[in-house]
Amino acid sequence: MLQMILTGLLCGALLGFVMQRGRFCLTGGFRDMYIAKDNRMFYALLIAIAVQSVGVYTLIQFGLFEFTAGSFPWVAVIVGSYIFGIGIVLAGGCATGTWYRAGEGLLGSWIALFGYMFMSAVMKSGVLAPVNQSLQTTQLPSNSLAESTGLSVWVFIILLVAIVLFIVIRELRKPKVMIPTMKQRKTGLAHLLFEKRWHPFFTALLVGLIAILAWPLSVATGRVAGLGITTPSANILQYLVTGDNTYINWGVFLVLGIFLGSFIAAKASGEFRFRMPDAKTGITSFVGGILMGFGASLAGGCSIGNGLVMTAMMTWQGWAGLFFMILGTWTASYFLFVRPRKVAKANANAIASTL
């Protein structure tokens, strides 16, 4: 039990610290792909996926543990991921982003987090569990890209690494855009850790390495999985309500560690402060959290579970989930940001034409 607590908290704290300092926000990244035509955060995600994939399959190759992709519940993954994508825009952050932003003192994220935990628990062991299980029964027999095609998994890993290297080299060769920075107040390691702006690609490298570390640490406690947010988040609420110790596992301490690591990073960098949302934002955050919990539970993973981990494991579930959560993000972004601007512009033009 002590090993579970220490390693789970350590891994989570590292992830929370890195994501907070590197502003590793997949919600903003997916949204920016559509609205601002800025793909840097998506490229950063691909880096983290590639790093994790190479590392984890190397560990598997050396026999440290085994991984079975299982079957592919394609209907649940498509529907759930799309709903999850809509939810993260309303909530103002994905599952992991909500945990680390809660650690910064953002009370809107606390509201979204409660909705997310509540609906995840309802979907996994509450009144909606039969609905969840029913939708997941429509499956394809193989979830593994390698098994489905008859190719070695390393073919897909090498292809991904080649694509990522091409993207990274191309992006780093672009002229640098000068971004105004605050006056340097810290020196040495303190400046690098708590003040200097982190490049998203560097942050992604660290996230990928932490994702690799999560596997052996989790496996050592009997949980054969890597980073995961949705089930552990539901487990916390299930444990608090029932007192059943079986809900306590390595993943629970992982997500608590994310909160802790983000809090430490935010306090040390002077970014921690309590921020109360207005009523409209609070309601929107809660609705977003509900949609996140519903979608991630149905899809079998969130932007980390499917978008980072199951993609790295070269599964249909991971890549299909990533595609449809991006599509859901774009849909919500259109109705919340793009369409209102178009309507406002059209109205302004109509008024101007009458003058």
Score class of each variant (00 low, 15 high):
277 P>R: 02
185 R>A: 10
124 K>L: 15
110 W>V: 13
326 I>H: 07
145 L>V: 02
54 V>P: 05
83 I>V: 15
241 V>H: 13
221 T>H: 10
273 R>W: 12
100 Y>Q: 01
31 R>P: 10
42 F>R: 09
256 L>I: 12
82 Y>N: 05
124 K>R: 15
288 G>I: 10
35 I>E: 00
188 G>E: 05
90 L>F: 08
266 A>Y: 13
306 N>C: 13
231 T>I: 06
214 A>I: 14
237 L>M: 05
307 G>Y: 03
211 A>E: 10
316 W>Q: 04
115 G>Y: 01
229 I>V: 13
123 M>A: 04
14 L>M: 11
241 V>C: 12
248 I>N: 02
85 G>C: 11
110 W>L: 11
128 L>Q: 02
36 A>D: 12
293 G>R: 04
291 L>V: 07
134 S>P: 04
306 N>L: 15
119 M>A: 02
335 F>L: 12
239 Y>V: 07
244 D>C: 07
272 F>I: 00
2 L>I: 08
41 M>F: 14
107 L>H: 01
201 F>C: 05
99 W>L: 05
87 G>K: 13
104 E>R: 07
184 Q>H: 09
101 R>W: 14
66 E>F: 10
111 I>Q: 14
260 L>E: 12
354 T>D: 07
73 P>L: 09
294 F>N: 02
114 F>A: 02
151 L>F: 14
84 F>Q: 03
333 S>V: 04
136 Q>L: 04
278 D>Q: 14
317 Q>A: 03
251 G>M: 02
142 S>V: 15
7 T>S: 15
27 T>G: 02
56 V>Q: 04
313 M>I: 10
272 F>T: 00
131 V>T: 13
92 G>P: 05
16 G>H: 03
104 E>T: 10
11 C>N: 07
35 I>Y: 03
244 D>F: 08
216 P>H: 06
95 A>N: 05
241 V>Q: 11
329 T>I: 06
138 T>N: 09
119 M>C: 01
30 F>A: 02
8 G>P: 08
135 L>I: 09
151 L>P: 00
90 L>I: 01
182 M>Q: 07
103 G>I: 03
7 T>I: 09
195 E>F: 15
